[in-house]
């Protein structure tokens, strides 16, 4: 618990985390577009700024200056509220991702927003609240495609939330705590990716599904339902959904880093912790982009039966085996 920190430090940390993560989003955007270009033997954006590096700035300016259109059948206030829910739920989760141990940069504050004993549950709680953003957005748009997208999002999130929870349960059991700082501290000998390799695989697959990224992007499958829940959205409201999706990618990467790759651990003094965390998170973000470029989208029934019939039993088995091993040793 960060009971020793005073309110001022907490406020400063909140602002720093918010600012840094929001700056990361444009970087992921340009990285994704450039890498997708490379993966598909294209150049990618190369006109705005040096080698197209200013493309995200142009994208954001375009989104901000666009007109908001609202269909006649829509519920306007709810349509405005939905992207807000997505963003708030995403940013709130960022607070628990640990970038360094308490005292790494001197003083008695830790390099994380908050360290709560319910860490992983906090992640699940806001993850499930983020669903209401997609659901309300799709429902209130008053369009069939949006509605279908929202329904797919609902079914997908319910199915994969169970698997993602069980995959992290093994980690929590091994570390004996649900606080992410404690979990990283517990990986001093060995990163949890070794003993919890099955859990790691399940977490990554379910994480892709949770963030609705390809190949699990059924809620917005553009070849089937136009653009799913955000079909009727334009301008910065669409931009908010877009940003929330990237924040979700950052969160999944951050949780995976803390739970499986030893968080801030790496060569060099502890003060370098945040650098290691950022490096490991970048590797995960690259993986997200790589898989998006490589794998085709699953069919909807495949997605469902994969989640319930393969992933969930496997995750349960993983928890069971972990429990037996922990009791025996």
């Amino acid at each position: 618990m960060s009971g020793t920190e005073n309110t001022l430090v907490q406020i400063v940390k909140a602002i720093v985390i918010f600012a840094v993560i929001l700056q990361i989003v444009p970087f992921i955007l340009i990285a994704e577009r450039k890498l997708l270009g490379r993966f598909q033997s294209r150049l990618g954006p190369n006109r705005v700024g040096f080698r197209g590096l200013l493309q995200p700035v142009a994208d954001v300016l375009k989104l901000v200056s666009k007109e908001q259109s609202v269909p006649v059948t829509a519920v306007p206030w709810m349509m405005a509220l939905a992207p807000l829910i997505s963003i708030v739920a995403g940013v709130a989760t960022l607070a628990i991702i640990p970038f360094g141990p308490p005292g790494a940069w001197g003083g008695d504050f830790g390099l994380y927003g908050i360290d709560v004993p319910i860490g992983l549950l906090y992640f699940f709680a806001f993850g499930s609240l983020a669903f209401y953003g997609l659901m309300l957005g799709g429902w209130s748009s008053g369009s069939k495609f949006s509605f279908l997208g929202a329904m797919r999002a609902a079914a997908q999130l319910i199915s994969y939330e169970v698997a993602i929870g069980l995959s992290l349960l093994g980690v929590a059991m091994t570390a004996g705590s649900m606080s992410l700082v404690d979990i990283v501290e517990d990986q001093s000998g060995m990163w949890f990716i070794v003993p919890q390799f099955v859990g790691f695989l399940i977490f990554m697959v379910a994480g892709f599904a949770e963030s609705a990224r390809p190949p699990f992007d059924q809620p917005e499958a553009d070849a089937e339902i136009v653009s799913g829940y955000n079909t009727e959205y334009g301008g910065m409201r669409f931009g908010s959904f877009f940003m929330a999706e990237y924040i979700e990618v950052v969160i999944i990467s951050g949780i995976a880093t803390a739970c499986f790759l030893g968080g801030w651990r790496g060569p060099g003094p502890e003060a370098l912790g945040p650098l290691w965390v950022l490096l490991k998170m970048s590797a995960f973000v690259f993986l997200f982009i790589w898989i998006r470029a490589t794998l085709p989208r699953l069919r909807y029934d495949q997605l469902m039966s994969f989640g319930w019939k393969i992933l969930l039993p496997l995750a349960t088995l993983n928890v069971l085996v972990t429990a037996i091993v922990l009791v025996v040793t």
Binding site: F124, S128, M135, M151
Partner: peptide
């Protein structure tokens, strides 16, 4: 009651109510 609060959100708002909304 932090645990209870998180469980409340995960189980009720996040799972049961999702089905209701659905």
């Amino acid at each position: 009651a932090e645990f209870l609060a998180a469980a409340q959100v995960v189980v009720y708002a996040g799972a049961v109510m999702v089905l209701y909304v659905f």
